[in-house]
Structure formats: structure tokens, C-alpha cells
Amino acid sequence: MRVIYRGCAVVAAVAVAAVGLVFVLPSRSDEVVAGQIAAPSAVPASSGPAPSPSPPASPSASPSPSPTESLAAATPRPTPTPGTSLAPGYTAMEALYADIRVPRLPARPKRLALRAPGKRVIEDTRSGLAVPRLGGQWKRHGAAPFTTKQVLPIKRGSTRRGVFVTCPLPIEEQAEPRDTALLAARWTLNHHPKGAKISWIASQPVKGGWMLVYQVKYGKRSARSAVAVVDGGMAKPGLAFASVPDTQRSRWADVTRAASGVRVLK
């Protein structure tokens, strides 16, 4: 019996020792795990939100004009002065302003008393105009290259004579009737001697257009001239042009009568 009791005592002692070993091992394991959790992260925390990526440029967006291009587009071209050299692409009015043969109109141009066309008229169906049929020594004449033409007889010793013609406008029409008449007056210099220059006498509106009266000087000679540009309801306005040289100055009054008597053909 004693042997049995001693054996039980030994078994009990071994069991107690095993229980103590079990409680010691888990406590050491808990310390390692706790230490790993408390360790600081190796990556530093960000001080703010991460920047978002920039959106890609739209392929359909048109590039903005450069400051130089914007300034050039906003700056109007200066008006040329007589004798100015013009760059390519100039307009008809810029060519007029640069022409030393055609001065600027006065700020307050003179106006003349307009005269009625009278009962006798000549009809120009191409330009849609009716013009006075001038009396006295004025005679109808072959019109080409115009559509109607009246002339004075050539005086002995002279090569020039008075003419009064009409035709559809032979130059580019402008937005303003006065500008169109100015270009027409410049065009009439083609029918005067080389070197001819204009000096203005009168500028005024007429029904359906504009009239200009001017003196044309060439060397020691001159001529009284006038143009009237009137809308006759055709594709282009009609032009009436009268000019009388100083060798026939007694007929200068006819120049104003001819231009002021232009009417729309009804």
C-alpha cells in the first residue's frame, strides 16, 4: 500500500509541475505580441490629402490667341495720307486716301443749288437713270464705251471738249454713297491728261445718291467736272460724269446742271 501511495504522490507532483509550465509559457508569448502592436509605423503619416491628378487637355479646345495677335486684331489700321506707300491687301478707300491727286474733302464742304432736269431728258436703261438733255451747242454723240454721251464741239486749236456721259458704276460700290462718289471722281482722272489733280468745289447728297463738283488741274489748264452716283434700281448704281475744259468756260454752268439733274428712270 505504501508503494501505491508513494506512486500516486509522484504522479501528483509531476501534474502540478506541468500545470505551472503551462501558465508560464502563455505569459511570455503575450509580451512579444503586445510589443509588435505598439511599434511605430516605418512610413511617416501624410500632413494633408494627396493631390489629385490634373485632367488631360481636351483635344477639341482651341488655343487662345497670343497677346500679340489679340493686340493686332483690336488695333485698327491707320488711315493713309497722300503719298503713303500701301502694303498688299489695301482697300479701295485706302488707295483713295493715299492718292496725292485727290485731297480730303473739307470738313464743311460747299453746297450748290440743285437744278431741275427740265422736260427734255435722255434715258439710260442700263443704269436706270434719266439725265437732262443739254441745249445750245450740246449734241448727242456715239456713246461707247459709255451708255449715253453728249458733247460740245471742239474749238479750233484745242484737242479737248465738254462731255456729259452716263454708265453703270465702273468701280466698286462702297457702303456710303459719298465714298462711292469719291472713288468715282478719282476714276474720272483717267479721262483727263496725265498729272491731273482734283480740288473740291462742292459735295452734297442727292436723291438716291451723292454729287461732287470739282476743278481738275493739269499743267496750266483746267476743267470743271462733276460726278453723280445714283441708285437707279439696277445691279449697280448709275454714274453721271460731266466735264468742260477752260477753253469752253462759258459752259461751266452746264456741269452743275447736268449732275444735279440726274434722276431715277421711272
Rank of each mutant, 00 (worst) to 15 (best):
G7I: 07
A18V: 13
V16P: 02
P59V: 05
V11H: 01
I122W: 00
T91R: 04
R224Y: 12
S158I: 02
V227L: 12
W252Q: 05
P103D: 01
P49T: 04
Y214V: 08
S64P: 02
S60Q: 10
M93H: 03
L265E: 01
V102Q: 12
V24T: 07
P80E: 07
H191M: 09
G261A: 02
K207W: 01
R257G: 08
A12R: 09
R101V: 09
P63D: 06
V206N: 08
A253P: 13
F23E: 01
K155M: 11
A15S: 10
W252T: 09
Y90G: 04
P117Q: 04
G142C: 00
N190E: 12
G232R: 02
P56V: 01
T147L: 00
F164V: 11
T159H: 11
G135W: 01
S46Y: 01
L21K: 02
S222Q: 13
S64Y: 03
A175Q: 09
G195P: 06
A181N: 06
W187F: 15
R133G: 06
V262H: 03
I4R: 08
K119S: 14
Y218G: 09
H191R: 11
K155C: 00
A107Q: 14
D124V: 07
S29C: 00
I4A: 11
A12N: 04
A228I: 09
A92R: 14
W210H: 13
A235T: 15
P168L: 02
R161I: 04
P65V: 05
G238Q: 01
T81I: 14
H191Y: 13
G209C: 07
A50F: 10
I100S: 13
E31S: 12
L134W: 10
V206M: 08
S260M: 03
A95K: 12
F23I: 05
G209K: 04
V216L: 04
I154S: 13
T68R: 14
E69L: 15
K119C: 03
H191T: 05
G219D: 02
V19G: 09
V244E: 04
G233W: 04
W187G: 01
L112R: 08
